[in-house]
Simulated scan of single mutants.
Amino acid sequence: MARHARARLSAGYAARRMSETRKKATAGTYFLTGYPGFIGKRLVEHIAREDPKAHIYALVQPKNFKEAQQHAARVKGARVELLTGDVVDMHLGLSGEEYQRLCERVTDIFHLAAVAQLGVAKETAWRVNVDGTRNMLELARDCGNLARFNYFSTCYVSGDRVGVIAEDELDRGQAFRNAYEETKFQAERLVQRAGATLPITVFRPSSVVGDSRTGEIDRFEGPYYLGILLVTSPLVVPLPLPGNGVAPLNVVPVDFVVEAVWRLSKDPRAQGNTFHLVDPNPMSARRVYELIAEKSNKKLPRFNLSARAADVMLRLPLLEKLARPQRAAISYVNHLAIYNCHNTLELLDGTGVRCPPLSSYLDQLVAYVREQYRKRREGSDEDDPLDSGIAQDAEGR
């Protein structure tokens, strides 16, 4: 449909404000962005199991449509309907009929789509993270049966703040270390403001790592995987940790995130609130590093590197290719931020959903990463970046 026609449709929908058309939802109809992303795929699977009579609409970029089709065909339970589009486009790139259908039927929105790479250009991050969220809020306002708008933010909207950070805090004059933090902050501001007229819930996960049962993850980025890289480097001696490593390294497994989001999205008490999806008792970066090194059968260096020196080290020829995405995460290893999760603990109390300690699933994470790096190195003349001790340890369990 031409842009001028879409504009007329938008004006018509805008006239039907949420407060005038709200109806009691009789069946779950879900609309999800960020599919078939790492968290998005698992959330779709979870919704389909928990609400098998529901209808799930998933917004998919054309370049990801084949992958989405393959995954959706394997989902058991609720029906998954794929819609080709993009959050950055007017009406999300949907036809007038598709957009109207969503407005009439959708009861729950899960907005996951985002550019999350730490080194992304600000212009790109702004277009997807901020403008895309603005477009999703417009859709939400046009949905007459909307029960909840669930927004995936990040605990790193706190920027360079240190100390204890509460769930109800957002703008505290912080600066930002990269475009990802800044644009997610600006996007959350839009969502929080929209909460005056929309039933919103904001989720702020820390660094999401692999499944606590299988270790599976699709992207090796962030401070946790930086630690794995450092101790499993191709060098004979593992690299020293950047800084002193006393700051907490807060990571959460993807299965906990999905289960927590689902529970809270259905809890009336969660409406209008923000939730830190974090490990309530994180280990220090140093302790995580030590545990990974132990599982690699390697001894730790007795000295530390400054963040600047670590960045230089990760540019060495043997490490540069592996470490390019992780260099941007160095600043997180020594950032003394403590994320209070009172809201999350209170509302999940008694549900059986809780964040497991990293020590309980670290074996699975390390084994999975090791296997993926092994596959990438097959046929290469370079040494396997992971010590064989991990394989022996994993097989011995």
Score class of each variant (00 low, 15 high):
Ala2Gln: 15
His4Ser: 09
Ala5Pro: 00
Ser10Met: 12
Lys24Pro: 03
Ala25Asn: 03
Gly28Met: 00
Tyr30Ile: 07
Phe31Tyr: 11
Phe31Thr: 14
Phe31Asp: 15
Pro36Gln: 11
Pro36Lys: 04
Pro36Phe: 09
Gly37Ser: 02
Gly37His: 09
His46Gly: 01
His46Asp: 10
His46Trp: 06
Ala48Met: 01
Arg49Gln: 15
Arg49Trp: 08
Pro52Phe: 02
Pro52Thr: 06
Val60Phe: 13
Val60Trp: 11
Lys63Ile: 14
Lys66Phe: 05
Leu82Ser: 09
Asp86Ser: 14
Asp89Cys: 13
Gly93Ile: 05
Leu94Met: 15
Arg101Ala: 13
Glu104Asp: 01
Asp108Ala: 05
His111Asn: 14
His111Arg: 02
Leu112Ile: 15
Val115Tyr: 06
Val120His: 12
Val120Arg: 12
Ala125Asp: 08
Val128Leu: 03
Cys143Leu: 01
Asn150Glu: 09
Asn150Ser: 13
Thr154Gly: 09
Arg161Cys: 00
Val164Gln: 07
Glu167Met: 02
Glu169Gly: 01
Gly173Asp: 00
Gly173Thr: 08
Gln174Leu: 04
Phe176Val: 03
Arg177Glu: 05
Asn178Arg: 02
Phe185Gly: 01
Phe185Pro: 02
Arg189Asp: 12
Ile200Tyr: 07
Val202Leu: 11
Phe203Lys: 08
Ser206Cys: 15
Val208Pro: 09
Gly210Pro: 08
Glu221Ile: 12
Ile228Tyr: 10
Leu230Pro: 06
Val231Cys: 04
Val237His: 10
Pro240Leu: 10
Asn244Lys: 04
Val246Cys: 05
Val246His: 13
Ala247Phe: 02
Asn250Trp: 09
Trp262Ser: 03
Leu264Trp: 03
Asp267Leu: 11
Pro268Arg: 13
Gly272Ile: 10
Asn273Phe: 02
Leu277Asn: 05
Met283Arg: 00
Val288Asp: 01
Leu291Ile: 11
Ile292Arg: 04
Ala293Gly: 12
Glu294Ser: 07
Lys299Asp: 12
Arg302Ser: 14
Ala307Gln: 12
Arg308Asp: 05
Ala309Pro: 00
Met313Phe: 14
Met313Arg: 11
Pro317Ser: 14
Leu318Asp: 14
Ala323Ile: 01
Ala323Arg: 00
Gln326Asp: 09
Ala328Val: 08
Ala328Ile: 05
Ile330Thr: 03
Ser331Arg: 12
Leu336Asn: 13
His342Asp: 12
Asn343Phe: 04
Glu346Gln: 06
Asp349Glu: 15
Gly352Thr: 08
Val353His: 11
Pro356Met: 10
Ser360Cys: 06
Leu365Val: 12
Val366Arg: 05
Val366Ser: 10
Tyr368Lys: 12
Arg370His: 11
Gln372Asn: 10
Lys375Cys: 10
Arg376Phe: 06
Arg377Gly: 08
Asp383His: 06
Ile390Pro: 02
Ala391Asp: 04
Ala394Arg: 13
